[in-house]
Design a protein around this nucleic acid. Structure first.
Lengths: 209, 209
DNA sequence: TAGATTGTTAATCGATTAACAATC
DNA sequence: TAGATTGTTAATCGATTAACAATC
């Protein structure tokens, strides 16, 4: 079913397409070309066509892509047509920010955990903070497939290990540290410290293109 | 002074090296090899050596890299040897999380802004939330070179434009939208919606390598 | 039909990895 | 010296872009 071997870069762009298509769908625009998409998203039109063509022939020559249809297709590809349940560990500021974040697409944080006894039992965006002991059982009961880590770097690997034993196969890590997991477990690392520090490199040079 | 044209990928790895080196520096380890770094950071040793060699000969054959010296050098490369001042716009949950975040390296949020009158004048991590009107003047007075955007997507482009006119040349964007800025202004986009949704693609397949 | 735009192949570009001489 | 590890060149790999026939 799933095509050959799609590069990470391609998969990573699909949500970006989806987001803009969702915007379009609330207008009266029915059709969009790769050129328009490219202009709006700052991407090469050929790249967009190629990305989409990996998954099927979604466009019509001379016309472009039907907005509604393409949304549906990208949702299918990303496996977002049925709800995806997420667990979050670490109820600090960042954890709270993410809990309150409206993901729109069918992705929902359905359980939050913390190891700090003083946090357990408090509520966060209508969810009760649970102790780490309950992780495995909750993952099973609520059919959770993705875990988010928003604990300090020193705790992140331990949490990742717990996620893995609980059967989670996808982890979004916000802790500023590299995590190691067995094959078959996928880690995406949102490293905004690195994003920010690397930005500093480009400052004050005045010789940019 | 600055070497040829270093790829973004290389620059983006420097903070990752720096972070682990900082950890090492608080142990009694004085020297580290590219192999050790690679193992710890899940990177190819040759890549690490190549990355560092773009900027100078920091290692000693047969020995490795002196931890303290390499830290100093990477800090210089990233222009972190003198303090870098940052402005943040958008005092929601995410903005607050970032304000409380301890960046360690010489990067400091020194001013926060919001357009919501009910937020202005309140304090966030010892900073008083300022109105957008004061952006230009504050950027000048506090020598701010980097801006962080944590407003809703619908407002993000406007904020970016304000940053640009205020003279800011580096922007870290957390809003889930693509920003357009003139040449010479650098944008790093932390798009965790995309990170999370793209993770879904890889779930439940059971045929991963 | 004429104009527009896809899907796809080929060309280009760039980044990663392997290999090894130099040398500490 | 022998062992280890760098800096760097060459080889490989992969991703982006250009170009164009097919066709709506």
């Amino acid at each position: 079913m799933k095509p050959d071997k799609i590069s990470e870069a391609v998969v990573r762009r699909l949500p970006v397409y989806l987001r803009y298509l969702n915007e379009l769908s609330s207008t009266d625009i029915l059709t969009v070309s790769s050129q328009e998409l490219g202009r709006k998203l700052d991407l090469n039109p050929a790249q967009i066509r190629k990305d989409l063509a990996y998954f099927g022939d979604f466009g019509r020559k001379g016309v472009g892509y039907n907005v509604i249809y393409l949304i549906e297709k990208i949702r299918q590809i990303l496996q977002l047509d049925e709800p995806r349940h997420v667990a979050l560990v670490g109820t600090g500021n960042l954890g709270r920010a993410l809990c309150n974040y409206n993901m729109k697409e069918n992705v929902k944080i359905v359980a939050v955990f913390d190891s700090d006894p003083s946090k357990i039992g408090t509520t966060m965006n209508r969810l009760i903070v649970q102790p780490m002991d309950e992780l495995e059982q909750t993952v099973r009961e609520k059919e959770i497939s993705i875990g988010i880590i928003t604990v300090p770097a020193s705790e992140a690997q331990k949490v990742a290990d717990r996620f893995v034993t609980a059967g989670i196969r996808g982890i979004l890590n916000f802790a500023p540290t590299v995590l190691r997991t067995p094959d078959g477990v996928r880690i995406h690392h949102t490293d905004f410290t690195a994003d920010l520090l690397s930005l500093a490199y480009y400052m004050d040079s005045d010789d940019e293109t």
